[in-house]
């Protein structure tokens, strides 16, 4: 099915959940309202004409805008979480994008939140752990939200653009 048709299905069913779209991109995407993400995903997976059975990847991208002239700080910007979906049955693909603040309520240290998709696609279980670990997005309802790649006592989320490079770990110098 053409992506424009998939988007039309979604807009008809969820008039308020689809916030934007770009069908000319290399991988056509739609932007989804976080509060309705789960309903949209259930629909995408179960609707016979769509049948997005496979979730390939969850990615969090940090759009931190550095203050002009470099230097520290800069809480401007936002997060975008990408979900790459495909249907083995129909052979079509779609990317969902969700826009988040970098910190919940703009309070530094409070991780932004998203509903979990781990009960819709089991792939999400480990991928959400990885996004939580490296990018610092909290997935509400996840059965086991622990760090997956970093040690469990690791501080901070390394793929955030303002992550300070530590030169030692538990007294062991890094370089």
């Amino acid at each position: 099915m053409e992506t424009s048709q998939i988007v039309r299905y979604l807009r008809e069913r969820f008039p308020r959940a689809i916030l934007g779209e770009n069908l000319q991109a290399f991988d056509p995407w739609v932007q989804v309202e976080p509060a309705q993400l789960r309903e949209v995903c259930f629909y995408l997976r179960d609707e016979p004409a769509l049948r997005f059975q496979m979730l390939h990847l969850i990615t969090a991208v940090d759009y931190l805008e550095k203050p002009p002239g470099g230097g520290q700080g800069g809480s401007e910007g936002h997060f975008e979480v990408f979900y790459h979906l495909s249907s083995l049955e129909h052979g079509h693909r779609l990317v969902l994008k969700v826009r988040l603040p970098r910190w919940k309520h703009n309070q530094p240290g409070q991780l932004p939140e998203l509903p979990t998709l781990s009960d819709i696609w089991r792939t999400a279980e480990w991928h959400e752990r990885e996004v939580y670990d490296l990018s610092g997005v909290c997935f509400i309802g996840h059965p086991d939200l622990r760090r997956i790649l970093c040690p469990e006592d690791w501080q901070g989320h390394p793929l955030r653009k303002d992550y300070p490079m530590s030169h030692q770990y538990q007294g062991i110098p890094g370089r």
Binding site: A25, F26, D27, H56, T59, V61, F82
Partner: peptide
């Protein structure tokens, strides 16, 4: 200023790269 995601068939399975 764009994103591209591509999966290929590696021996172990589908290997994907995303570049923003």
């Amino acid at each position: 200023v764009a994103e591209a995601y591509l999966e290929t068939e590696a021996p172990k399975g589908q290997l994907g790269f995303l570049i923003v």
